[in-house]
Amino acid sequence: MKSYAKKSEWPDVVNGRGVPIRKAVWQIPALLVLAVIAGIGTNAWRSDGIPLVGDWSAAARFSDTAGESIAIPLERAADQFEKGTALFLDARPPGQYAEGHIRGALNLPWQGVDMYFMALADRLGQSEMLVTYCDGESCELSHELALFLKEMGYGNVHVLINGWTVWQHAGLPVEQEQ
């Protein structure tokens, strides 16, 4: 067996330098630091980078191309509903609309919107205000639909966030497809 004069000449494995767990202890933070530097660095450098601290408030998430919020509070939506001044548009697929929707709402599914829109365009024009909704805090269908309608020239378009759920919870009128 080979003998060593000094401890520092021992093979790595004996004095612990080569033990995997010891390597992991510095490699894990090193990998994380490298990734953070690469991520933040490229994000700052690229043209489509995002702010490191984003604004995820409902108002910011549901805004039009000019950055104006188009979210409508439930109370206001309910008020418009009672007065009959708003037309509600359900952006969910026909199957979910048939299972239940806000009373009087029309189904304008975001998937296949071009086709459905042609059939409904006249009726949309007769209403003072359009309110789109779908289901779930993170559902984007109503938002996409609202932006589409704005682009088509309808000025007064709003999104009722998490509409189907909050409408039901408030006990407001709903109906089912016969």
Partner: peptide, 11 residues
């Protein structure tokens, strides 16, 4: 959210 979204893919 954004910080994680920027760094996680690089990890």
């Amino acid at each position: 959210v954004n910080l994680v979204a920027v760094t996680l893919p690089w990890i």
